[in-house]
Amino acid sequence: MRYIIFFPFALFLCNCATKEKPLPIFGERNIDGQDTVYHTIAHFEFVNQDSAIVTNSTFENKIYVTDFFFTSCRSICPIMKTQMLRVYDTIKNKSDVLILSHTIDPEYDTVPLLHDFAERLGVESKKWHFVTGVKDSIYKIAQTSYFATALEDKTEPDGFIHSGAFLLVDKEGRIRGKYDGTKEEDVNRLIADIERLEAEYVQ
């Protein structure tokens, strides 16, 4: 008898789980006539670990996860890379998801150094781009497009201040999630959100 009472509840729960709310869209939005215009990532052009040019069009029709780091950092970056490697392991066989890591120390983190770093981490450059470029352009895109902190600060032990954030960007270049890349539970949430975002594109 008890089972019969519980049964409709179970059905109700199943129903809820399949209809998830879409992920939020971050940043300012403007109404343009009938359309809502969302905050999107500004134009960028950087160079990756294989000396290939990486721009917004590299991520055309792709979901991507991005962060800011530098290879000589001993504080939060190694934790971020450990966690990003977990993300990499879950997306390496997905054709529509990529990773983009920006160095905030382009003077030290040259293309050969980034190449060596990626190779030692054991990741493929077509899935995980490590980019360098003009320092000011990197700082500007961090602050204005990704709402992430990246600054040079000689008073810091390693010379820079930066947030440990991982950002999830959708196929339209809109930020759909912000996570603490130093916390395992937050990165678990990111991994789940990538699946949710992918599902939004499946009709």
């Binding site: 190694p78 890379k81 450990t82 490697l85 770093f117 190779e119 030692r120 981490l121 054991g122």
Partner: peptide, 9 residues
Amino acid sequence: NGTGLGRLY
């Protein structure tokens, strides 16, 4: 757990 990371650490 002391395992290091890839061929980095």
